[in-house]
Design a protein around this nucleic acid. Sequence first.
DNA 1: TCAATAGTTCGATAATAACGAACAATTGTA
DNA 2: TACAATTGTTCGTTATTATCGAACTATTGA
Lengths: 105, 105
Amino acid sequence: MSQFLHPSKEDITLHGILNALGDPLRMRIAQNLLLKQGDMSCSEAAPCHTIAKSTLSHHFRILRESGLIRTTKQGVEHRNALRIEDIEEKFPGLLDTVFKYAGAE
Amino acid sequence: MSQFLHPSKEDITLHGILNALGDPLRMRIAQNLLLKQGDMSCSEAAPCHTIAKSTLSHHFRILRESGLIRTTKQGVEHRNALRIEDIEEKFPGLLDTVFKYAGAE
DNA sequence: TCAATAGTTCGATAATAACGAACAATTGTA
DNA sequence: TACAATTGTTCGTTATTATCGAACTATTGA
């Protein structure tokens, strides 16, 4: 009874992941989630507080529907986490390689 | 006196590359260029002949301005090639990893 | 000089992204 | 039970980007 639409591991596509990470804002969200090594609320993972929350919500949906993150509801917050194991199973080494170069941008 | 706008190696960004490859059409163009291991004309590298050539031109421009490909003029054709060495220098292993999983999509 | 070829550019329309406002769901508090 | 506060989604509008066909440029070959 997940309220969010997540693709199954098999349905995750490479271009979906690349497209998700090809946007600077979404990349920074993903980096934040990676650093935290746990789940974060949307506003917590947001790279800045100037962006409209409707826009933020839109980006989280793209991240979610690409399969890069999983969102669960906890109280009033939506907690987000990278689907590291799923991505690693489907595309071994991809996240390592990408995040290795994502730091400085 | 190149007629095309190519970023210098240092100006190539990760999200530019990911964004370029995050589109299925552009990914297939890049794959074609990789397989050929040489340069190809735009129409030669195009994944299908139903797409409008103005649209194709647009995608080649994005690939070019991301730094993923280099375009040179040879007669009436524009020859395109992946900038493998440049990308490899800036992001070692990135193209290997990405193209390893790009085949089946 | 003229036709053929390969791409680019332009103008119009379609699709997508950004924003603020209104909404829904949950929590805490009186 | 209200009711306010908080988090995020949805909706409607506007701005940006993608797609297309038509017109254009540059080059080649007849």
